[in-house]
């Protein structure tokens, strides 16, 4: 029989690593999403094209392959990353490529009339973006970003492939060492789900806060 303390000592360090990867990966992803998403809306053909190639490349090759490539092939070109660095980089780049579509889509979803009203009120380009377009677009972005954050959380489960001991890896270790299959896997299923729920709750709270309210 398994003691609860055993379960905690096996799984807990993995939980912490999974959370670290999720937070850092998503921060990187959000930064990339905004940079690449706005680049795709740029007037410059050169910027638009490079942003397009970036997204197609990261969305077109499997994340699993990218992880291997970053860890095993990049060092051959003199760029050695620790497993943790490789994981954050690949998670962030991959998720950021998908999420750039969220940023672009939200900006394009704004009615053209809002832009025209800004021009009629003589706001400068920066003021249009900062005061009128972005506040409205951000609100549209929250639900899809919530999904994207959860998808990245789920993707962290593959980092055991490059020898990181995340939650999934720990459950595997526990299975081989204790011979118990059901408890470790059920535990981490519930933990993943709890983390996913937490993310979507936080994002929903953020959405409520950003929704304009009448005084």
């Amino acid at each position: 029989m398994l003691a609860p303390s055993q379960l905690v000592s096996y799984i807990l360090p993995g939980v912490i690593l999974t959370i670290e990867l999720t937070v850092l990966g998503n921060l990187l992803a959000a930064g990339i999403a905004f940079t690449v998403g706005f680049a795709r809306l740029s007037k410059s053909t050169w910027l638009r094209l490079s942003a397009r190639i970036f997204t197609e490349f990261f969305r077109g090759t499997s994340m699993y392959v990218q992880l291997f490539w970053a860890y095993f092939v990049l060092p051959l070109f003199g760029l050695a990353l620790t497993p943790f660095q490789a994981a954050v980089l690949v998670l962030g780049l991959n998720s950021g490529a998908y999420a750039s579509e969220i940023v672009r889509g939200a900006m394009l979803a704004l009615p053209r009339e809002q832009l025209e009203a800004c021009i009629a009120l003589n706001l400068s380009r920066w003021q249009r973006l900062r005061r009128v377009l972005l506040p409205q677009a951000l609100l549209l972005m929250i639900p899809p970003f919530s999904n994207s954050f959860v998808e990245l959380l789920k993707s962290t489960s593959i980092v055991s492939l490059i020898s990181l001991s995340d939650m999934t890896f720990r459950a595997q270790t526990m299975r081989t060492q204790t011979g118990n299959t059901a408890i470790p896997f059920l535990t981490i299923l519930i933990l993943y789900f709890a983390l996913a729920l937490f993310i979507s709750k936080v994002m929903r709270a953020l959405e409520r806060r950003l929704t304009p309210k009448a005084a």
Binding site: V150, K154, S155, T156, S157, I158, T168, A171, Q172, R175, T181, A182, F185, I188, L189, Y192, F193, A196, L197
Partner: peptide
Amino acid sequence: EFIRGTPLLVQLYFAFYILPD
């Protein structure tokens, strides 16, 4: 919601290791 909120990899392990149990 549960299936969507948990990783495919863990579900794979689940099907592979637990179902025989």
